[in-house]
Design a binder for these strands. Structure first.
Lengths: 225, 225
DNA sequence: CCCACTCCATTGTTGAGCAATCTGCTAGCG
DNA sequence: CGCTAGCAGATTGCTCAACAATGGAGTGGG
Protein backbone atom coordinates (compact mmCIF):
# COMPACT_ATOMS: atom_id res chain seq x y z
CA UNK A 1 0.00 0.00 0.00
CA UNK A 2 2.15 2.87 -1.26
CA UNK A 3 -0.08 5.85 -0.48
CA UNK A 4 -3.70 6.46 0.36
CA UNK A 5 -5.30 7.74 -2.77
CA UNK A 6 -6.66 11.22 -2.02
CA UNK A 7 -10.10 10.22 -0.84
CA UNK A 8 -12.76 11.13 -3.32
CA UNK A 9 -15.66 10.07 -1.20
CA UNK A 10 -18.22 11.91 -3.22
CA UNK A 11 -17.14 11.09 -6.69
CA UNK A 12 -19.41 12.81 -9.11
CA UNK A 13 -20.03 12.45 -12.76
CA UNK A 14 -19.35 15.15 -15.30
CA UNK A 15 -22.97 16.26 -15.38
CA UNK A 16 -22.95 16.99 -11.66
CA UNK A 17 -19.75 18.96 -11.93
CA UNK A 18 -21.11 21.06 -14.75
CA UNK A 19 -24.37 21.67 -12.92
CA UNK A 20 -22.37 22.81 -9.91
CA UNK A 21 -20.22 25.09 -12.03
CA UNK A 22 -23.32 26.67 -13.51
CA UNK A 23 -24.85 27.05 -10.07
CA UNK A 24 -21.80 28.97 -8.97
CA UNK A 25 -21.97 31.23 -11.98
CA UNK A 26 -25.58 31.87 -11.09
CA UNK A 27 -25.02 32.91 -7.51
CA UNK A 28 -22.04 34.98 -8.54
CA UNK A 29 -24.26 36.90 -10.89
CA UNK A 30 -22.21 35.97 -13.95
CA UNK A 31 -25.38 34.61 -15.48
CA UNK A 32 -28.36 36.91 -15.28
CA UNK A 33 -32.02 36.08 -15.21
CA UNK A 34 -33.32 35.19 -18.62
CA UNK A 35 -29.97 34.36 -20.13
CA UNK A 36 -30.32 31.39 -22.46
CA UNK A 37 -28.29 28.28 -21.71
CA UNK A 38 -27.57 26.83 -25.13
CA UNK A 39 -26.56 23.22 -25.19
CA UNK A 40 -23.99 23.52 -27.95
CA UNK A 41 -22.28 26.53 -26.36
CA UNK A 42 -22.02 24.89 -22.97
CA UNK A 43 -20.82 21.65 -24.51
CA UNK A 44 -17.97 23.50 -26.13
CA UNK A 45 -17.26 25.68 -23.12
CA UNK A 46 -16.95 22.72 -20.76
CA UNK A 47 -15.54 20.43 -23.41
CA UNK A 48 -18.09 17.70 -22.92
CA UNK A 49 -20.70 16.19 -25.13
CA UNK A 50 -24.10 17.75 -25.62
CA UNK A 51 -25.76 14.81 -23.88
CA UNK A 52 -23.80 15.47 -20.74
CA UNK A 53 -24.81 19.12 -20.85
CA UNK A 54 -28.44 18.10 -21.18
CA UNK A 55 -28.17 16.05 -18.01
CA UNK A 56 -26.67 19.00 -16.18
CA UNK A 57 -29.44 21.27 -17.40
CA UNK A 58 -32.04 18.81 -16.19
CA UNK A 59 -30.53 19.10 -12.75
CA UNK A 60 -30.65 22.88 -12.82
CA UNK A 61 -34.24 23.02 -13.97
CA UNK A 62 -35.41 20.49 -11.42
CA UNK A 63 -33.65 22.59 -8.78
CA UNK A 64 -35.71 25.54 -9.88
CA UNK A 65 -32.77 27.61 -11.07
CA UNK A 66 -33.66 27.46 -14.73
CA UNK A 67 -36.74 27.03 -16.85
CA UNK A 68 -37.16 24.63 -19.68
CA UNK A 69 -39.51 25.11 -22.59
CA UNK A 70 -39.74 22.33 -25.12
CA UNK A 71 -37.90 23.05 -28.32
CA UNK A 72 -37.00 26.43 -27.01
CA UNK A 73 -34.30 25.44 -24.61
CA UNK A 74 -33.25 26.27 -21.10
CA UNK A 75 -32.82 29.75 -19.70
CA UNK A 76 -31.86 31.16 -16.33
CA UNK A 77 -35.04 31.58 -14.37
CA UNK A 78 -36.34 35.04 -13.75
CA UNK A 79 -38.30 35.43 -10.57
CA UNK A 80 -41.76 36.92 -10.52
CA UNK A 81 -42.93 39.02 -7.62
CA UNK A 82 -45.26 36.27 -6.53
CA UNK A 83 -42.45 33.73 -6.52
CA UNK A 84 -40.31 36.00 -4.39
CA UNK A 85 -43.13 36.32 -1.89
CA UNK A 86 -43.56 32.53 -1.81
CA UNK A 87 -39.84 31.99 -1.43
CA UNK A 88 -39.63 34.40 1.47
CA UNK A 89 -42.65 32.81 3.05
CA UNK A 90 -40.96 29.45 2.88
CA UNK A 91 -37.71 30.95 4.08
CA UNK A 92 -39.46 32.41 7.10
CA UNK A 93 -40.94 29.04 7.91
CA UNK A 94 -37.50 27.42 7.81
CA UNK A 95 -35.78 30.04 9.90
CA UNK A 96 -38.53 30.13 12.48
CA UNK A 97 -38.21 26.38 12.83
CA UNK A 98 -34.58 26.95 13.70
CA UNK A 99 -35.27 29.92 15.96
CA UNK A 100 -37.73 27.83 17.96
CA UNK A 101 -34.81 25.69 19.08
CA UNK A 102 -33.03 28.67 20.57
CA UNK A 103 -34.16 27.59 24.04
CA UNK A 104 -32.25 24.36 23.99
CA UNK A 105 -29.04 24.93 22.06
CA UNK A 106 -25.65 24.21 23.56
CA UNK A 107 -22.51 26.27 23.27
CA UNK A 108 -21.23 24.32 20.29
CA UNK A 109 -24.36 25.15 18.33
CA UNK A 110 -24.05 28.76 19.38
CA UNK A 111 -20.54 28.74 17.96
CA UNK A 112 -21.84 27.66 14.56
CA UNK A 113 -23.80 30.90 14.52
CA UNK A 114 -20.82 32.97 15.63
CA UNK A 115 -18.41 32.02 12.88
CA UNK A 116 -20.27 33.17 9.77
CA UNK A 117 -21.33 36.26 11.66
CA UNK A 118 -17.71 37.28 12.23
CA UNK A 119 -16.82 36.53 8.63
CA UNK A 120 -19.71 38.63 7.42
CA UNK A 121 -18.66 41.53 9.65
CA UNK A 122 -15.13 41.33 8.31
CA UNK A 123 -16.42 41.36 4.75
CA UNK A 124 -18.50 44.43 5.49
CA UNK A 125 -15.55 46.45 6.79
CA UNK A 126 -13.59 45.27 3.75
CA UNK A 127 -16.37 46.55 1.53
CA UNK A 128 -16.83 43.15 -0.09
CA UNK A 129 -20.56 43.22 -0.63
CA UNK A 130 -20.80 39.84 -2.31
CA UNK A 131 -18.80 38.09 0.39
CA UNK A 132 -20.83 39.83 3.04
CA UNK A 133 -24.00 38.45 1.55
CA UNK A 134 -22.54 34.95 1.27
CA UNK A 135 -21.59 34.87 4.93
CA UNK A 136 -24.83 36.50 5.95
CA UNK A 137 -26.72 33.72 4.21
CA UNK A 138 -24.44 31.19 5.89
CA UNK A 139 -25.49 32.70 9.20
CA UNK A 140 -29.11 32.12 8.34
CA UNK A 141 -28.33 28.61 7.18
CA UNK A 142 -26.79 27.99 10.58
CA UNK A 143 -30.00 29.18 12.19
CA UNK A 144 -32.01 26.69 10.17
CA UNK A 145 -29.51 23.97 11.01
CA UNK A 146 -30.46 24.35 14.67
CA UNK A 147 -33.63 22.44 13.86
CA UNK A 148 -31.44 19.36 13.25
CA UNK A 149 -33.35 18.34 10.15
CA UNK A 150 -31.27 17.59 7.08
CA UNK A 151 -34.26 17.66 4.79
CA UNK A 152 -35.18 21.08 6.08
CA UNK A 153 -31.61 22.20 5.46
CA UNK A 154 -31.85 20.96 1.89
CA UNK A 155 -35.07 22.85 1.30
CA UNK A 156 -33.54 26.00 2.73
CA UNK A 157 -30.45 25.72 0.58
CA UNK A 158 -32.69 25.42 -2.45
CA UNK A 159 -34.70 28.44 -1.42
CA UNK A 160 -31.58 30.53 -0.90
CA UNK A 161 -30.20 29.46 -4.26
CA UNK A 162 -33.35 30.62 -6.00
CA UNK A 163 -33.40 33.86 -4.07
CA UNK A 164 -29.83 34.55 -5.08
CA UNK A 165 -31.03 34.61 -8.66
CA UNK A 166 -32.59 37.90 -7.73
CA UNK A 167 -30.23 39.00 -4.99
CA UNK A 168 -27.19 38.61 -7.21
CA UNK A 169 -28.48 41.40 -9.41
CA UNK A 170 -28.76 44.09 -6.79
CA UNK A 171 -26.22 45.93 -4.77
CA UNK A 172 -27.01 45.20 -1.13
CA UNK A 173 -28.34 48.37 0.43
CA UNK A 174 -27.44 49.68 3.87
CA UNK A 175 -24.65 47.14 4.10
CA UNK A 176 -23.10 48.73 7.15
CA UNK A 177 -26.27 48.17 9.15
CA UNK A 178 -26.13 44.40 8.75
CA UNK A 179 -23.59 43.59 11.46
CA UNK A 180 -25.53 45.41 14.14
CA UNK A 181 -28.76 43.78 13.10
CA UNK A 182 -27.19 40.34 13.07
CA UNK A 183 -25.50 40.87 16.42
CA UNK A 184 -28.84 41.76 17.89
CA UNK A 185 -30.29 38.56 16.51
CA UNK A 186 -27.32 36.55 17.71
CA UNK A 187 -27.73 38.00 21.20
CA UNK A 188 -31.25 36.55 21.35
CA UNK A 189 -29.87 33.11 20.55
CA UNK A 190 -27.09 33.53 23.09
CA UNK A 191 -29.79 34.36 25.64
CA UNK A 192 -31.78 31.29 24.56
CA UNK A 193 -34.66 33.61 23.83
CA UNK A 194 -36.65 31.90 21.07
CA UNK A 195 -39.51 34.37 21.10
CA UNK A 196 -37.16 37.31 20.90
CA UNK A 197 -35.27 35.76 18.03
CA UNK A 198 -38.47 35.10 16.11
CA UNK A 199 -39.73 38.61 16.68
CA UNK A 200 -36.58 40.05 15.19
CA UNK A 201 -36.37 37.54 12.36
CA UNK A 202 -39.81 38.17 10.90
CA UNK A 203 -39.54 41.92 10.25
CA UNK A 204 -35.99 41.47 9.02
CA UNK A 205 -37.16 39.00 6.41
CA UNK A 206 -40.15 41.14 5.48
CA UNK A 207 -37.91 44.12 4.89
CA UNK A 208 -35.48 42.06 2.86
CA UNK A 209 -38.33 40.67 0.79
CA UNK A 210 -39.82 44.04 -0.02
CA UNK A 211 -36.38 45.34 -0.88
CA UNK A 212 -35.88 42.58 -3.44
CA UNK A 213 -39.35 43.04 -4.87
CA UNK A 214 -38.77 46.76 -5.17
CA UNK A 215 -35.59 46.12 -7.05
CA UNK A 216 -37.27 43.65 -9.37
CA UNK A 217 -39.97 46.14 -10.25
CA UNK A 218 -37.47 48.93 -10.81
CA UNK A 219 -35.36 46.99 -13.22
CA UNK A 220 -38.39 45.47 -14.91
CA UNK A 221 -37.06 41.95 -14.49
CA UNK A 222 -39.41 39.09 -13.88
CA UNK A 223 -41.86 40.12 -16.54
CA UNK A 224 -44.18 37.74 -18.35
CA UNK A 225 -43.95 34.26 -16.89
CA UNK B 1 -59.50 28.17 -38.41
CA UNK B 2 -61.08 24.70 -38.54
CA UNK B 3 -60.74 23.56 -34.96
CA UNK B 4 -58.70 24.58 -31.96
CA UNK B 5 -56.06 21.99 -31.52
CA UNK B 6 -56.58 20.38 -28.13
CA UNK B 7 -54.43 22.71 -26.11
CA UNK B 8 -51.31 21.02 -24.91
CA UNK B 9 -50.13 23.82 -22.70
CA UNK B 10 -47.70 21.69 -20.81
CA UNK B 11 -46.01 19.78 -23.51
CA UNK B 12 -43.43 17.55 -22.03
CA UNK B 13 -40.52 15.66 -23.42
CA UNK B 14 -40.05 11.93 -23.29
CA UNK B 15 -37.76 12.10 -20.28
CA UNK B 16 -40.39 13.88 -18.21
CA UNK B 17 -43.03 11.36 -19.20
CA UNK B 18 -40.83 8.47 -18.23
CA UNK B 19 -39.92 10.07 -14.95
CA UNK B 20 -43.61 10.53 -14.25
CA UNK B 21 -44.38 6.94 -15.16
CA UNK B 22 -41.70 5.73 -12.79
CA UNK B 23 -42.99 8.04 -10.05
CA UNK B 24 -46.40 6.45 -10.41
CA UNK B 25 -44.95 2.98 -10.21
CA UNK B 26 -43.19 4.09 -7.05
CA UNK B 27 -46.24 5.39 -5.24
CA UNK B 28 -48.23 2.37 -6.38
CA UNK B 29 -45.68 0.15 -4.73
CA UNK B 30 -44.84 -1.66 -7.96
CA UNK B 31 -41.26 -0.69 -7.39
CA UNK B 32 -39.94 -1.40 -3.92
CA UNK B 33 -37.19 0.30 -2.02
CA UNK B 34 -33.80 -0.82 -3.16
CA UNK B 35 -34.91 -2.09 -6.54
CA UNK B 36 -32.28 -1.29 -9.13
CA UNK B 37 -33.29 0.87 -12.07
CA UNK B 38 -31.15 -0.38 -14.90
CA UNK B 39 -30.78 1.93 -17.82
CA UNK B 40 -30.86 -0.74 -20.50
CA UNK B 41 -33.95 -2.42 -19.07
CA UNK B 42 -35.88 0.80 -18.81
CA UNK B 43 -34.79 1.87 -22.27
CA UNK B 44 -36.25 -1.31 -23.68
CA UNK B 45 -39.36 -1.22 -21.51
CA UNK B 46 -40.26 2.33 -22.53
CA UNK B 47 -38.83 1.94 -26.01
CA UNK B 48 -36.60 4.97 -25.79
CA UNK B 49 -32.88 5.45 -25.95
CA UNK B 50 -30.64 4.96 -22.99
CA UNK B 51 -29.77 8.65 -22.92
CA UNK B 52 -33.39 9.57 -22.48
CA UNK B 53 -33.67 7.12 -19.63
CA UNK B 54 -30.65 8.70 -18.01
CA UNK B 55 -32.32 12.09 -18.11
CA UNK B 56 -35.42 10.65 -16.49
CA UNK B 57 -33.33 9.01 -13.78
CA UNK B 58 -31.60 12.31 -13.09
CA UNK B 59 -35.00 13.81 -12.42
CA UNK B 60 -35.93 11.03 -10.04
CA UNK B 61 -32.71 11.24 -8.08
CA UNK B 62 -32.85 15.00 -7.79
CA UNK B 63 -36.41 14.62 -6.53
CA UNK B 64 -35.07 12.34 -3.81
CA UNK B 65 -36.94 9.27 -4.98
CA UNK B 66 -33.87 7.36 -6.07
CA UNK B 67 -30.21 7.22 -5.21
CA UNK B 68 -27.37 7.33 -7.65
CA UNK B 69 -23.96 5.83 -7.04
CA UNK B 70 -21.37 6.37 -9.71
CA UNK B 71 -20.73 3.31 -11.85
CA UNK B 72 -23.22 1.41 -9.78
CA UNK B 73 -26.37 2.89 -11.15
CA UNK B 74 -29.66 4.15 -9.81
CA UNK B 75 -31.87 2.35 -7.32
CA UNK B 76 -35.15 3.14 -5.65
CA UNK B 77 -34.32 4.96 -2.46
CA UNK B 78 -34.82 3.18 0.81
CA UNK B 79 -35.63 5.44 3.70
CA UNK B 80 -33.66 5.38 6.90
CA UNK B 81 -35.33 5.97 10.23
CA UNK B 82 -33.63 9.33 10.51
CA UNK B 83 -34.88 10.38 7.11
CA UNK B 84 -38.42 9.44 8.02
CA UNK B 85 -38.16 11.58 11.14
CA UNK B 86 -36.84 14.49 9.10
CA UNK B 87 -39.54 14.08 6.49
CA UNK B 88 -42.27 14.06 9.09
CA UNK B 89 -40.73 17.07 10.77
CA UNK B 90 -40.85 18.93 7.50
CA UNK B 91 -44.34 17.67 6.82
CA UNK B 92 -45.49 18.97 10.17
CA UNK B 93 -44.03 22.36 9.40
CA UNK B 94 -45.91 22.50 6.10
CA UNK B 95 -49.23 21.40 7.50
CA UNK B 96 -49.01 23.72 10.48
CA UNK B 97 -48.40 26.59 8.09
CA UNK B 98 -51.69 25.67 6.45
CA UNK B 99 -53.51 25.11 9.72
CA UNK B 100 -52.50 28.57 10.89
CA UNK B 101 -54.66 30.03 8.15
CA UNK B 102 -57.74 28.26 9.48
CA UNK B 103 -58.90 31.52 11.05
CA UNK B 104 -59.31 33.31 7.77
CA UNK B 105 -60.48 30.79 5.19
CA UNK B 106 -63.63 31.29 3.17
CA UNK B 107 -66.23 28.70 2.27
CA UNK B 108 -64.61 27.90 -1.07
CA UNK B 109 -61.39 26.97 0.65
CA UNK B 110 -63.29 24.90 3.14
CA UNK B 111 -64.84 23.03 0.22
CA UNK B 112 -61.40 22.08 -1.06
CA UNK B 113 -60.90 20.25 2.21
CA UNK B 114 -64.30 18.59 2.04
CA UNK B 115 -63.93 16.88 -1.32
CA UNK B 116 -60.92 14.62 -0.72
CA UNK B 117 -62.30 13.85 2.70
CA UNK B 118 -65.49 12.43 1.21
CA UNK B 119 -63.56 10.50 -1.40
CA UNK B 120 -61.34 9.03 1.28
CA UNK B 121 -64.34 7.99 3.36
CA UNK B 122 -65.91 6.31 0.34
CA UNK B 123 -62.69 4.43 -0.35
CA UNK B 124 -62.57 3.23 3.24
CA UNK B 125 -66.05 1.73 3.11
CA UNK B 126 -65.13 0.16 -0.22
CA UNK B 127 -62.09 -1.37 1.41
CA UNK B 128 -59.73 0.24 -1.09
CA UNK B 129 -56.80 0.90 1.18
CA UNK B 130 -54.56 2.40 -1.47
CA UNK B 131 -57.23 4.79 -2.71
CA UNK B 132 -58.05 5.75 0.84
CA UNK B 133 -54.45 6.72 1.42
CA UNK B 134 -54.30 8.67 -1.83
CA UNK B 135 -57.33 10.75 -0.91
CA UNK B 136 -56.18 11.11 2.65
CA UNK B 137 -52.94 12.59 1.42
CA UNK B 138 -54.90 14.84 -0.93
CA UNK B 139 -56.75 16.10 2.14
CA UNK B 140 -53.48 17.01 3.77
CA UNK B 141 -52.29 18.63 0.57
CA UNK B 142 -55.40 20.76 0.64
CA UNK B 143 -54.54 21.81 4.19
CA UNK B 144 -51.10 22.94 3.08
CA UNK B 145 -52.66 24.74 0.11
CA UNK B 146 -54.47 27.01 2.55
CA UNK B 147 -51.18 28.79 3.07
CA UNK B 148 -51.44 30.03 -0.52
CA UNK B 149 -47.78 29.39 -1.25
CA UNK B 150 -47.02 27.44 -4.39
CA UNK B 151 -43.46 26.82 -3.38
CA UNK B 152 -44.61 25.37 -0.09
CA UNK B 153 -47.04 23.16 -2.00
CA UNK B 154 -44.18 21.92 -4.16
CA UNK B 155 -42.08 21.08 -1.13
CA UNK B 156 -44.96 19.24 0.44
CA UNK B 157 -45.66 17.22 -2.68
CA UNK B 158 -42.02 16.20 -2.70
CA UNK B 159 -42.14 15.20 0.94
CA UNK B 160 -45.25 13.11 0.41
CA UNK B 161 -43.74 11.41 -2.60
CA UNK B 162 -40.74 10.38 -0.56
CA UNK B 163 -42.86 9.23 2.31
CA UNK B 164 -44.91 7.09 -0.03
CA UNK B 165 -41.74 5.16 -0.76
CA UNK B 166 -42.19 3.77 2.71
CA UNK B 167 -45.95 3.99 3.02
CA UNK B 168 -46.51 2.02 -0.17
CA UNK B 169 -44.97 -1.00 1.47
CA UNK B 170 -47.24 -1.26 4.46
CA UNK B 171 -50.87 -2.06 4.80
CA UNK B 172 -52.49 0.96 6.42
CA UNK B 173 -53.48 -0.01 9.92
CA UNK B 174 -56.72 0.93 11.63
CA UNK B 175 -58.10 2.14 8.33
CA UNK B 176 -61.63 2.45 9.62
CA UNK B 177 -60.57 4.98 12.23
CA UNK B 178 -59.32 7.45 9.63
CA UNK B 179 -62.64 9.01 8.61
CA UNK B 180 -63.58 9.90 12.18
CA UNK B 181 -60.16 11.35 12.83
CA UNK B 182 -60.26 13.40 9.65
CA UNK B 183 -63.79 14.64 10.34
CA UNK B 184 -62.66 15.85 13.71
CA UNK B 185 -59.83 17.74 12.08
CA UNK B 186 -62.13 19.12 9.40
CA UNK B 187 -64.52 20.35 12.07
CA UNK B 188 -61.76 22.49 13.55
CA UNK B 189 -61.23 24.12 10.17
CA UNK B 190 -64.96 24.62 9.70
CA UNK B 191 -64.96 26.35 13.07
CA UNK B 192 -61.99 28.50 12.01
CA UNK B 193 -60.13 27.15 15.02
CA UNK B 194 -56.45 27.25 14.05
CA UNK B 195 -55.16 26.28 17.47
CA UNK B 196 -57.52 23.32 17.68
CA UNK B 197 -56.53 22.14 14.23
CA UNK B 198 -52.84 22.34 15.09
CA UNK B 199 -53.34 20.49 18.34
CA UNK B 200 -54.98 17.60 16.52
CA UNK B 201 -52.56 17.63 13.62
CA UNK B 202 -49.38 17.23 15.63
CA UNK B 203 -50.21 14.01 17.49
CA UNK B 204 -51.77 12.56 14.36
CA UNK B 205 -48.54 13.08 12.46
CA UNK B 206 -46.45 11.81 15.36
CA UNK B 207 -48.48 8.61 15.47
CA UNK B 208 -48.26 8.15 11.74
CA UNK B 209 -44.52 8.71 11.86
CA UNK B 210 -43.92 6.15 14.57
CA UNK B 211 -46.12 3.68 12.76
CA UNK B 212 -44.02 3.97 9.61
CA UNK B 213 -40.79 3.74 11.55
CA UNK B 214 -42.05 0.68 13.34
CA UNK B 215 -42.87 -0.95 10.05
CA UNK B 216 -39.46 -0.08 8.62
CA UNK B 217 -37.72 -1.69 11.56
CA UNK B 218 -39.89 -4.79 11.42
CA UNK B 219 -39.21 -5.46 7.78
CA UNK B 220 -35.59 -4.54 8.09
CA UNK B 221 -35.79 -2.09 5.21
CA UNK B 222 -33.73 1.03 5.24
CA UNK B 223 -30.58 -0.66 6.35
CA UNK B 224 -27.10 0.58 5.60
CA UNK B 225 -27.22 3.95 3.89
C1' DC C 1 -10.47 -19.89 4.37
C1' DC C 2 -8.74 -16.09 1.90
C1' DC C 3 -6.50 -13.75 -1.62
C1' DA C 4 -5.61 -12.51 -6.51
C1' DC C 5 -7.09 -12.69 -10.99
C1' DT C 6 -10.18 -12.87 -14.77
C1' DC C 7 -14.51 -12.12 -17.02
C1' DC C 8 -18.84 -9.99 -17.62
C1' DA C 9 -22.60 -6.73 -16.83
C1' DT C 10 -23.44 -2.09 -16.33
C1' DT C 11 -22.53 2.58 -16.29
C1' DG C 12 -20.13 7.06 -18.12
C1' DT C 13 -19.40 9.64 -21.97
C1' DT C 14 -18.72 10.60 -26.67
C1' DG C 15 -19.91 11.90 -31.43
C1' DA C 16 -22.63 11.82 -35.32
C1' DG C 17 -26.99 12.05 -37.21
C1' DC C 18 -31.81 13.26 -38.24
C1' DA C 19 -36.59 14.90 -37.36
C1' DA C 20 -39.25 18.49 -35.14
C1' DT C 21 -39.74 23.00 -34.00
C1' DC C 22 -38.84 27.89 -33.30
C1' DT C 23 -37.13 32.45 -35.14
C1' DG C 24 -36.17 35.91 -38.12
C1' DC C 25 -36.18 37.39 -42.64
C1' DT C 26 -37.90 38.05 -47.09
C1' DA C 27 -41.19 38.40 -50.67
C1' DG C 28 -45.54 38.87 -52.30
C1' DC C 29 -50.19 40.60 -51.74
C1' DG C 30 -53.76 43.68 -50.83
C1' DC D 1 -47.69 50.89 -45.95
C1' DG D 2 -49.02 46.90 -43.38
C1' DC D 3 -49.66 42.11 -43.32
C1' DT D 4 -49.27 37.22 -44.09
C1' DA D 5 -46.93 33.09 -46.13
C1' DG D 6 -43.25 30.80 -46.46
C1' DC D 7 -38.56 29.89 -46.69
C1' DA D 8 -33.94 29.22 -44.56
C1' DG D 9 -30.91 28.77 -40.34
C1' DA D 10 -30.44 27.72 -35.77
C1' DT D 11 -31.54 24.91 -31.87
C1' DT D 12 -33.56 21.36 -29.53
C1' DG D 13 -35.34 16.30 -28.92
C1' DC D 14 -34.04 11.99 -29.36
C1' DT D 15 -31.65 7.96 -31.33
C1' DC D 16 -27.93 4.90 -32.22
C1' DA D 17 -23.52 2.80 -31.87
C1' DA D 18 -19.30 2.66 -29.83
C1' DC D 19 -15.70 2.41 -26.27
C1' DA D 20 -13.48 3.22 -21.71
C1' DA D 21 -14.03 2.74 -16.79
C1' DT D 22 -15.74 0.52 -13.05
C1' DG D 23 -17.86 -2.88 -9.93
C1' DG D 24 -19.18 -7.48 -8.83
C1' DA D 25 -19.27 -12.21 -9.29
C1' DG D 26 -17.06 -16.21 -10.08
C1' DT D 27 -12.65 -19.07 -10.21
C1' DG D 28 -8.59 -21.07 -8.97
C1' DG D 29 -4.36 -21.22 -6.23
C1' DG D 30 -2.18 -20.84 -1.94
Amino acid sequence: MPALKPIELHRTGAADLIAQALREQLVDGELRSGDPLREADLAEAFDVSRNTVREALRLLTSAGLAVHEVHRGVAVKSLTVEEVRDLYGLRELCELAGALRAETIDSAQLATLRTPLDLAAAAVVAGEGRDAMTHDLAFHRAIVALACNRRLDAVFVGVLAELRLGLAMMEPSSLEQWPARNEELYARFAARDAAGASERLVPYLARSCEELIGHLQETGTGRDA
